[in-house]
């Protein structure tokens, strides 16, 4: 597709990536012919209907699935090598906090597994709790927090070990719109202050347009990329930017892309 900057190694480089699952009903092509290059510091959203392969692509980047065609590199390495190098933090749709651990101990989980010294675990937990505005909630158990706060804790957990890449699979999909708006705003601030390359899967057009520097529009059967839109919006984005003409134009283009990819089903 399109390289937005030359020179440095791209964070994600996909060339002709395809993925076919062998199921009981025969092979299912989840993804085909994906070419995509993502550079450091970008915020890339993947949008499309169910079955368009956006989650599959994210999972392939995280080495949770292995592409059956093409090449995919993360920081110039094979995805599972990148994982071993702690290249990314993954945020799932469900916060997935352990109910038997406090918020602070949930955030420490990856640090414990990766063998950080105890003092550093403590310091890092404090730092990311502050980053997601959950100071003072470290000793609470997950059930004592609202859904939005739980998802913030899960983002903190993904940030705790300082991965360069943040992979987010519909992290706000289960939240109501008011909470979602607020978390979108916070996520943008977080992205601006940490400069992490972010791959963000979503169903929501406004969410994708509001957050992204680039929007990848996908369509199903088989899952493929139908459009890649560079956002002309400035990096600084107050919530009311969503009423601007540019915003509405991009949203319309995304919608057109989704409709075209979906044939006459929509």
């Amino acid at each position: 597709m399109k390289d937005t900057a030359g020179g440095a190694t791209p964070v994600i480089a996909a060339r002709g990536v395809g993925l076919t699952f062998q199921t009981a009903d025969g092979p299912v092509t989840a993804l085909t012919g994906v070419d995509l290059t993502i550079h450091r510091g970008e915020f890339v959203s993947f949008i499309g209907p169910s079955g368009c392969g956006k989650t599959t692509f994210l999972r392939a980047v995280a080495a949770l699935e292995e592409p059956t065609e093409g090449t995919l590199t993360v920081n110039g390495m094979a995805p599972d090598m990148a994982r071993r190098a702690r290249a990314y933090g993954y945020v799932f749709q469900a916060a997935g906090l352990y109910p038997w651990r406090t918020i602070a101990r949930n955030i420490r989980l990856p640090l414990e597994i990766m063998g950080f010294p105890a003092a550093e675990q403590e310091a890092r937990t404090e730092r990311v709790l502050k980053l997601v505005e959950l100071e003072g909630f470290g000793n609470k158990f997950p059930w004592q927090l609202s859904g939005g706060m739980q998802q913030r804790a899960s983002i903190a957990r993904a940030l705790a070990f300082d991965a360069d890449i943040l992979l987010m699979d519909e992290p706000f999909g289960a939240l109501d719109e008011i909470v979602r708006d607020r978390l979108n705003e916070e996520l943008l601030n977080l992205w601006a202050s940490t400069g992490k390359t972010t791959l963000f899967v979503t169903h929501s057009i406004p969410e994708a347009v509001y957050l992204s520097t680039r929007i990848v529009v996908m369509s199903p059967r088989p899952g493929r990329v139908t459009d890649v839109i560079d956002s002309p919006l400035p990096r600084e984005r107050p919530l009311h930017i969503r009423d601007s003409r540019e915003f509405i134009e991009i949203a319309a283009r995304v919608r057109d892309g989704l409709r075209a990819g979906h044939g006459d089903e929509v």
């Binding site: 949770l64 994982r83 071993r84 993954y90 799932f92 997935g96 352990y98 990856p110 990766m114």
Partner: peptide, 13 residues
């Protein structure tokens, strides 16, 4: 659940 096991996989547990 699978998602919880996947999460641990992403940590190389």
């Amino acid at each position: 659940e699978q998602a919880q096991l996947d999460l641990l996989t992403t940590y190389n547990a």
